[in-house]
Design a protein around this nucleic acid. Structure first.
Lengths: 221, 221
DNA sequence: CCTACCGATCGGTAGG
DNA sequence: CCTACCGATCGGTAGG
């Protein structure tokens, strides 16, 4: 009766398999969309039976929700977490934008930003998936807006500017980088986003702002 | 043998049916995506047999391409055409942006901007549909960029600015209005886009620019 | 986690 | 534009 076993197998094999399924689901969904993935194709990729895959989730929708959740966690750690540890104010705000662009450049997901893709897929289809995609979008939007407000509070940004307006414009440049890069495959799109962001931030920066957001200069390529 | 008939029926019944199919396809696809529409569901909506729908197109892909083409024509006439008739320079450039926002506000398509939705759906799936969606995106991007260059040529905009950079930023604000409005259902998102666009244009406007792009002021709601 | 199976729906064809 | 039909695949279930 192996209760601890030999640690080589068994610890929580189910959880490992479940994670493997979610990894494959996220990879597939990034390219084809969360709705288009099918349990049968996942089973094929994973060399499992259909019902073997199915057994880990109560329904296709639960699988989709779990995959979105897994992608969101990956998004947070790849596109947000490092920047959130920076000093409040312009460093953190610029860090968030730059970290997001780096997440796009590193192609963390093969199909571009997973959150934007999923939001575009479900933005007009009411239901749990739309709700979850909206919540994921809010996770990001709130982080940006909080960083803007905090930059005003520490005195780096002029309080005359409307935080919602600045957050909207920063977000606009970031999501444009995603779709434009997928369209042109031209890395200068990232430079354009950085130029636009730097312009907005320097224009609103106060005298107390730390040597302004210099960042990696895009050069004149 | 009715050769001219009584004009009530018959002229080109096939073409009429085909158009009805495309209208339904565009409406469905705007909400659910071009890939998700099925010939069977279209037949149901149109009270036709599946093969009756199918007969007008050689394949599902051809139906999708035809629907995208129909949506593009509608996009051009609703979001571009009126603005393109305005005077070259800032009037036309501002007109294009404002017309696009109006197209979103009027909810020409129930699921937001059809071009952006379709591009997001196929941006990572190589094939004829991705190519057609990219071409549709270029139709719009080129119009904006040409309007920017033309505004420089007539002396309304400072030639120091990079046209590609300005076009990128205007486009960013426009597509952000689309996704943000679908997310929040808050019309202030359109105001934010207009404020950002006006800011960009006034900042680059020369002395010869016609009384600057005033536009409908968003008020302080 | 498997085999075996269900009804429904898919895109597409035959033949008229 | 129809009826009738095809093989393939879908999400999901039974039973182990």
């Amino acid at each position: 009766m192996p209760q601890v076993s030999d640690t080589s197998q068994s610890p929580r094999k189910g959880a490992i398999t479940r994670q493997a399924i979610l990894d494959a689901a996220v990879r597939l969904a990034s390219v084809e969309g969360l709705e288009t993935i099918s349990i049968g194709r996942l089973a094929e990729v994973l060399q499992m039976s259909k019902s073997g895959v199915f057994a880990h989730f109560g329904s296709k929708q639960d699988l989709q929700l779990a995959a979105l959740d897994a992608a969101l966690h990956r998004f947070v750690s790849e596109a947000m977490q490092p920047a959130l540890h920076q000093a409040a104010g312009l460093p953190r705000l610029w860090g968030l934008c730059d970290q997001y662009l780096s997440y796009l450049e590193r192609r963390v997901f093969p199909g571009g930003c997973f959150l934007l893709a999923t939001w575009a897929e479900f933005d007009s289809r009411p239901g749990p998936l739309r709700d979850a995609a909206a919540a994921a979008m809010h996770t990001w939007n709130d982080a940006i807006e909080r960083a803007v407000i905090s930059a005003q509070e520490v005195g780096h940004l002029d309080t005359m500017g409307d935080p919602a307006q600045l957050a909207f414009e920063l977000n606009a440049l970031l999501q444009a980088a995603n779709s434009a890069f997928l369209l042109s495959n031209d890395r200068r799109e990232f430079d354009r986003a950085r130029v636009g962001i730097r312009d907005r931030l320097t224009r609103l920066a106060t005298a107390q702002a730390p040597h302004r957001p210099a960042a990696s200069s895009p050069g004149d390529t």
